[in-house]
Every structure is written in structure tokens, then in C-alpha cells.
Simulated scan of single mutants.
Amino acid sequence: MPFSDTPPAQPTVPRDAATVILLRDTDAGIEVFLQRRVAAMAFAAGMTVFPGGGVDERDADTSVRWAGPAASDWAKWFGGTESVARALVCAAVREMFEESGVLLAGPDGGVVADAARYADARRALESRDLSLAGFLAGSGLTLRADLLRPWAHWVTPVQEKRRYDTRFFLAVLPEGQHADGATTEAESSGWQRPQDALADAEAGRSTLMPPTWYTLKELAGFRTSGEAFAAERTIETIIPTLIREGDRIRVLMGDQ
């Protein structure tokens, strides 16, 4: 179906999703973990993105042992119900573990130092043979919601057929853990300084969606992950607008 500037009469209802901006500190400044999605993906094929994905209905399971801000706090920060907020936090932790191997969970009061020991559970989570609640309970782990910070809220433009209502979380790589690219959804993964990732996109070596580009621009202004983690954020919903300019499609932000 050809692109139209006119919004559809019945836009696709966006699916709730969670994205995690994972940071680490280096001598050269902060780095962010990015993945290039495989070309066969139905959404954002070939794009360079942060780890994340859609909410699974089981992510709202209230039996998950939880440390940190309550679901009511996340609902206030991001908007929506407590059930949706709980599911978003759980989806953020689950998706990051599935796609990068980084696990924001641990025994009471702690966080696992080496998540590689849960490789079998990681694969079972990715195949949906295991729920996050089942994994955490069976392993005696507590979800660490206090290791996440709300960062942004983006909704896919109304012209798109596949739409997501995505909340962006910020996290810092836990000491002792390692991020990898052992996921079927990415053809490559790695750490980059935000300004280097932007330079790659400007040079045509990678392709970024508007939320990724915008977030990297923000992150480039921080010297350390702690500084970014402590930044005051007001979460506003951003729904970009798509317009045609000649033979190109331009993305407009809310203030343009």
C-alpha cells in the first residue's frame, strides 16, 4: 500500500513494548549497547537498536518477587495502569536478558555477578517455553526494578501498520556481567560511544530509527553512566509524524 500523508481512518492499535538503554563507563566516556537487527525481522529489519521487544501477557504476573519502585510508581512515571506498568518493567528485564545476556535480578539485596550460568533459562525465555516469573522463582531471584530508570515514551507513527507503544528504560551494566549478541534477532552487537554511533549513521554505515537517534543525541551530553542515571526526566509521549517531501519520507517530531 503506497504511503499517504493522511492518517488512516482506523490506525493500528500499538502493542506495549519495552526498550532498555544499557550503559557502561570507559576511559573514553560512556558507551551504549547496540544491536543490528537481522534483515528478516518483521519490524525494524536491519536497523541498529537498543535491546527490547513487545510485552508478553505473562509479564504482568504479580507473583514476581520485586525490589525497587512499586508498579504504582512506574504507572505514574509512564502513564497507564499498574498492571501495564508491572508488565513493562518485567518485559524490560526479560528482553534485555534474552537479547544481551544481562540480567537485572539476584538473590535478595543483590544482583547476579555472572548471568551466563542461566543460559538454558535464557533460551527457554526466548522461545517462550518459560515465563520470567517461572524463571525467577525457580532460580530464587528477585527482579531489581531499582536498577532501571524511566527515560522516554515513544509511539510508532499512525501511518505504520505495525505499531508499538514503547517505554524506554535506562540501565547500567552490573559489575561482573557481560553483554553479548547471542540472540537470533541480531546479526551483530556491540558497545559504542553515542557520538560514534551517530557518526556511523550519518556516514551511512548504519540506520537508526528516530527514537534511537534522538536518545543517542541525549546520551552524548553525559560524561558518565551515573550522571545519566541520576538525570531528572519528565516523560512525555512522543508520536512522530510522517510526511512526504518529493520521493523521500520525512519524520517530524512534536515540536517541528
Rank of each mutant, 00 (worst) to 15 (best):
V32C: 09
A201T: 06
A228C: 11
I243Y: 10
D73V: 12
T184L: 15
T26N: 07
Q256V: 13
R65V: 13
V158C: 08
S100N: 01
A124H: 10
A60Q: 02
A145G: 05
T26V: 02
Y164P: 02
P240W: 06
E232M: 12
Q159K: 09
T156R: 06
G176Y: 03
Q192T: 08
R163D: 04
Q192S: 15
E57V: 15
D16L: 15
V32T: 03
T19E: 15
V89Q: 08
R250M: 13
T184K: 15
A9E: 14
D16W: 13
D25L: 06
F168V: 07
G52W: 02
V172I: 15
S100Q: 06
V93Y: 02
L143W: 07
A121K: 12
G109S: 01
Y214W: 10
F50I: 00
L141Q: 10
E57L: 15
P14V: 00
A197P: 07
A113F: 11
P194V: 05
R117P: 11
R223Y: 10
E95M: 10
L34M: 12
P210M: 05
A179E: 10
G134M: 02
A220M: 00
R123K: 13
A115T: 07
P174W: 04
P51Q: 09
E218P: 03
L198I: 12
G190D: 06
V49P: 09
P2Y: 03
S189C: 08
R248W: 13
P210I: 05
A70Y: 07
R205K: 14
E126V: 13
A9Y: 10
L104C: 02
R250K: 14
L34P: 00
V55N: 00
T212Y: 07
A119F: 05
D180M: 11
L88V: 12
F168P: 04
G134A: 08
T224M: 01
P194F: 10
L132K: 00
D129L: 01
